[in-house]
């Protein structure tokens, strides 16, 4: 897969907006994007909470 990079900072919000103004098919893309974004966010969050409760191991034998 080719990485999408540019010398110009396109701005995340401006990129997302392009799906929003792209008509019905754009809304479908936006829906998929938001779903993936939400799922990724959800998958990361519990691990963060768990790590906060874990005891700190100071000695390893």
């Amino acid at each position: 897969m080719t990485a999408v990079v540019a010398y110009l900072d396109p701005g995340s919000g401006s990129l997302i907006l392009q799906a929003l103004v792209g008509g019905f098919s754009g809304l479908v893309v936006l829906g998929r994007y938001l779903w993936t974004h939400w799922m990724t966010h959800k998958a990361i969050q519990p691990r963060t909470e768990l790590s906060a409760e874990m005891p700190v191991v100071t000695h390893l034998h």
């Binding site: 540019a6 990129l15 392009q18 990724t40």
Partner: peptide
């Protein structure tokens, strides 16, 4: 995240 990549994966 790389928003351009994420949009690409979403079918942009």
């Amino acid at each position: 995240e790389n928003t351009a990549e994420a949009l690409k994966s979403s079918g942009f």
